[in-house]
C-alpha cells in the first residue's frame, strides 16, 4: 500500500501542474510546473521526502527504461534524419564541448573567489 500511496502523491502533483498550465494558459509545460510545485511542497514540509522516497528513487534509478518507447519512434521518422545524422553528431559534440567548458569555468571562477573571501 505504501507504494500506491507514494505514486498517488506524485501523480497528484503532476496533475496539479497540468491543471495550473491549463487554467492560467502558462507557457511552461505542466510537467515543469509540477516539478516546481513539488519543490515548493517539499520546502514547505507539506510533503516529506520519506512519503515519496521509494517511488521517486525507482523512477530516478530506472529513468532510462522509460525513454525506450519514444526512442523506438525513430523507426517512424528516420527519413528526416537521412543525410543529416553525421552532421547532427558532430554538432552535438561541439556543442557539448562548449557547454561543459563554459559551465565549469564560470562555476570555478565564482566558487574560488568565494573560497578566498571566506578563507
Amino acid at each position: 500500500m505504501k507504494i500506491i500511496g507514494q505514486l498517488a502523491i506524485i501523480l497528484a502533483v503532476y496533475l496539479s501542474g497540468l491543471l495550473l498550465e491549463h487554467i492560467f494558459s502558462l507557457p511552461l509545460p505542466g510537467s515543469i510546473i509540477g516539478l516546481l510545485l513539488m519543490l515548493l511542497l517539499l520546502h514547505l514540509n507539506i510533503i516529506k521526502v520519506e512519503k515519496i522516497k521509494q517511488v521517486s528513487d525507482f523512477f530516478l534509478n530506472n529513468m532510462m527504461f522509460f525513454f525506450i518507447p519514444a526512442t523506438v519512434g525513430i523507426m517512424a521518422s528516420y527519413q528526416i534524419l537521412e543525410g543529416f545524422l553525421l552532421k547532427i553528431i558532430v554538432l552535438v559534440m561541439i556543442s557539448v564541448l562548449i557547454t561543459i567548458s563554459i559551465t565549469a569555468l564560470v562555476v570555478q571562477f565564482i566558487a574560488k573567489r568565494k573560497d578566498r573571501n571566506n578563507g
Binding site: 503532476y14 509540477g34 510545485l37 523512477f59
Partner: peptide, 8 residues
Amino acid sequence: PITVVLAV
C-alpha cells in the same frame, strides 16, 4: 511524473 520527482 518522472519530471516531477526530479525535484527530489
